[in-house]
Computed example of a mutant assay.
Amino acid sequence: MSYRPPTSNPNYISPGRVKNNRPGVPWLAGCGLLGLGFLLGVVGLVVGALFWFGSTASNQPLPTRQPLAGVPDLSATLSESYLNAEIAREAKSNPLSIVGIVSLKDIVIKILPNEQIQVDVKVGNALVDFDVSVLESIGVVNGQIAVRAIGEPKVGKGNLPVNVNTVVQIVNTTIVEPQINNNVATIKVNERLLHLLDLQTANGQITVRYRAQ
Rank of each mutant, 00 (worst) to 15 (best):
48 G>D: 15
49 A>S: 14
50 L>D: 15
51 F>P: 02
52 W>N: 11
55 S>D: 10
55 S>N: 03
56 T>H: 11
56 T>M: 10
57 A>N: 03
58 S>M: 03
59 N>E: 13
60 Q>F: 13
62 L>H: 10
63 P>G: 12
63 P>K: 14
63 P>S: 13
65 R>G: 11
68 L>V: 05
69 A>H: 10
69 A>T: 12
74 L>C: 13
75 S>L: 09
75 S>E: 13
75 S>Q: 12
76 A>N: 06
77 T>F: 09
78 L>R: 00
78 L>C: 04
79 S>F: 00
80 E>K: 03
81 S>E: 15
82 Y>W: 13
82 Y>Q: 14
82 Y>D: 14
83 L>Y: 07
83 L>E: 07
83 L>Q: 11
83 L>D: 07
84 N>G: 01
85 A>I: 09
85 A>R: 02
87 I>Q: 05
87 I>H: 06
88 A>K: 01
89 R>N: 10
89 R>F: 11
91 A>G: 04
91 A>M: 10
92 K>T: 02
96 L>Y: 02
98 I>G: 00
98 I>Q: 05
100 G>E: 09
102 V>P: 01
103 S>F: 06
105 K>P: 03
106 D>E: 03
109 I>C: 08
109 I>L: 12
110 K>L: 08
111 I>D: 00
111 I>A: 07
111 I>Q: 03
112 L>F: 13
113 P>C: 07
114 N>F: 11
114 N>R: 14
115 E>Y: 13
116 Q>N: 10
117 I>C: 06
118 Q>I: 02
118 Q>D: 02
119 V>L: 01
122 K>Q: 14
124 G>V: 01
126 A>C: 09
128 V>I: 02
130 F>C: 07
132 V>M: 08
133 S>A: 14
134 V>E: 03
135 L>P: 05
136 E>N: 11
137 S>R: 10
140 V>A: 08
141 V>M: 04
144 Q>V: 04
144 Q>R: 11
144 Q>S: 08
